[in-house]
């Protein structure tokens, strides 16, 4: 199986789009930057899907296809909320609509065949709120830290999600999360090149919709344990809360130690639960390797 292309292609696409987004190093406050970050993340995910399993059909037939197109929509529409970021009402309004739409689009088959009305309302509300809260947490973190801190955090989160999904019985979804990690890797390289670049603006929303979409799909459609799903979904919120509660006198570099320490701890526990569940099945039978 081709492992390299789904990693290299999203990284190259993301880096290229970021660089082309209105000469971002010259005008770091320009809206084109916000737009560029969101579109870079969405298009790189699309490119990763094409490299891994081909072009998703439209209209989408599976939840993964829906997620790819939802990411593109969030990439275009979601960047607008970052442009109007000073007004909380349109910002939250757009986020709620996008998150709810993405949730409905991905899980409509469960709503039609498996869930009753109460479960549909309950789960869609839960998924929508988790996307909005994680989006807000990561966006707030990105506001507080320039440079490569946020792309590095996103990369770590995407890598952990990827590993957990592979143990959660979906190598494809794990690799798709790996595509997101590759795009974040491109952002880290660009951020190291110019620390002033707010690469995460706009991209954060698309990133959250994709990663939480993969996690919830991993729980509902694959075999990702609920504990792992919940821990990984809660990780961005926990990290932002920790960072926000730290005294301001602690300088940026020192703040990163507990931030990344907690990321490693929370995601590590999540991966351990996924691995334990995988081992339970694998130990029943002879060894099974994809």
């Amino acid at each position: 199986m081709n492992v390299a292309a789904p990693v290299i292609i999203p990284a190259l696409v993301a880096g290229l789009v970021w660089l082309l987004a209105g000469q971002l190093w010259k005008r770091p406050a320009a809206p084109s930057l916000v737009y560029g970050g969101a579109v870079a993340m969405a298009i790189s995910f699309f490119a990763g899907h094409v490299a891994l399993v081909g072009q998703p059909p439209f209209p989408p037939t599976t939840a993964i296809h829906s997620l790819v197109y939802a990411a593109l929509i969030v990439g275009v529409v979601g960047s607008a909320e970052s442009i109007w970021r000073s007004h909380w009402a349109p910002r939250w309004g757009i986020r709620l609509v996008l998150a709810c739409g993405a949730a409905w689009w991905q899980f409509t088959s469960l709503a039609e065949h498996s869930w009753n009305t109460g479960q549909t309302i309950g789960w869609l509300t839960t998924i929508t709120l988790t996307i909005c809260i994680a989006w807000d947490a990561l966006d707030s973190f990105a506001n507080r830290h320039t440079g490569f801190a946020t792309p590095l955090l996103m990369w770590g989160f995407a890598c952990a999600t990827s590993i957990a999904l592979v143990f959660g019985a979906s190598a494809m979804m794990g690799q798709l999360a790996g595509c997101v990690a590759a795009a974040c890797g491109a952002a880290i390289v660009l951020a190291l090149w110019s620390r002033a670049l707010p690469l995460d603006r706009g991209a954060v929303g698309v990133f959250v919709v994709i990663l939480l979409g993969l996690l919830w799909q991993g729980y509902f459609f694959a075999a990702l344990p609920l504990t792992s799903t919940a821990l990984l979904i809660a990780a961005p919120v926990a990290i932002f809360t920790l960072d926000a509660r730290m005294p301001e006198r602690i300088v940026s570099a020192k703040r990163m130690i507990p931030v990344f320490g907690s990321l490693i701890t929370i995601t590590g526990i999540a991966i351990w639960f996924a691995f334990a569940a995988y081992q339970t099945v694998a130990s029943e039978m002879e060894e099974y390797v994809y």
């Binding site: 939840a63 979804m173 060894e287």
Partner: peptide, 20 residues
């Protein structure tokens, strides 16, 4: 007749049986 493989086959990579 292999639990690990059955789990993988049932998932989104192949039969996606919870969705279909």
């Amino acid at each position: 007749f292999n639990g690990g493989r059955d789990k993988h086959l049932s998932g989104p990579d192949f039969f996606n049986s919870k969705q279909f």
